[in-house]
Every structure is written in C-alpha cells, then in structure tokens.
Amino acid sequence: MYGMVNKSVQALVTTTFGIDKWESIKRKAGVKEDVFLSNESYPDSITYGLIGAATEVLGMSADEILFAFGEFWILHTAREEYGDMLSSAGRNLPEFLEYLPMFHIRVALIFPNLKPPRFECSNRKADRITMHYFSHRPGLSVFVRGLFSGVAKLYNTPAQITQTKFKDKGDDHDEFLVYWGDAAKQ
C-alpha cells in the first residue's frame, strides 16, 4: 500500500491518542520507518501490522479502528493532502460516488505500482446508490464503510451506509447501499 495510508494511520493515532501510543504501536508492529512517504509503495503487511498492533495498544476492536480510520482518511488525510483532488471529484455526495470508479482507474494510471481497489456503481436513484467494492486485499470492508461515511460528512450530507454483500462470507465482492436525504433518516 502507498505510504499515504500508513501516514494516515499514524496521523489518526497521534492526533487522537498521542505520540507515545503511536510509538508503542510501531514497536509492537515491528515497524522501523521514521517517516512514511505518501507516494512510496510499502508492503501491505506494514499496514495490517499497524492496525493489528493498534487494536491491542488502544484496546479497540479492529472494526472500530478500521471504521474510524476510514472516516479519518477522508476528513483529514485526503482533505489535507489531496483536498483539490477530492473536491474536483464531485460537487456533492452522489456525484462523488458516481465518479469513484473512474477516480480509481485514473489513480491506477498515475501510480503504476499501486494496486487500487475497483469500484462500480449501480441502481443510482435520487436518494441512493449501490456501490460495489472489489479488492485483492482482505478485511478492509469496514474501512471502506468508514470512507463512505467520511465522504458523506465531507459534503455535509447525512447518509446511511449498509453493507449488503460480504466477501469474507462467501460473496464474490463487497457491496454497500448508500442512502442520503430523507432515505437516510428512515
């Protein structure tokens, strides 16, 4: 995974729990890097190691951490580092979600070593959309749900995100139903 993801884990832990906790997590995960470079490719094992160590050090479940990390990634890391890119991806939540598949294709073209996930959209309605998530990386569906939640917050749009298909339960991919507007209040 690119350094921006690890950097984000670092930022989430240090801003929320302090630098000492981050150092403990790094030690526990056996990570030696002082600094993560956003566009440098790092082994996925580093990210998984950091998240695993964070569950122990922070006393939180992996799902809690992954969801918080997903929201944080959008609302802090991406907004601070890729703010213009994020804003240019859509004027509102539905536009952003619709553009997400293309966004990842473009990212894959720019970062040749990155193996980004693939997204697809279907059933676009006035108040909802179905998002399909395909990735060779296991166990990140909660992180993706956190990302969607973060995007909704970014656009100040109350939304409800429900996972409807689960790759780790035998489906061929993960699927999310995203509601906004009145549908989200139901």
Binding site: D84, M85, S88, A89, G90, E98, Y99, M102, F103, R106
Partner: peptide, 14 residues
C-alpha cells in the same frame, strides 16, 4: 493548470 483553477470554473473531473 491546477485542480484549484478547475474548481474555480465550477468543473469536476467527470
């Protein structure tokens, strides 16, 4: 020449 310029023109990537 920049994404910022693009936003000022009310344009998105799509």
């Amino acid at each position: 020449r920049t994404l910022k310029q693009m936003q000022l023109l009310q344009l998105v990537m799509n």
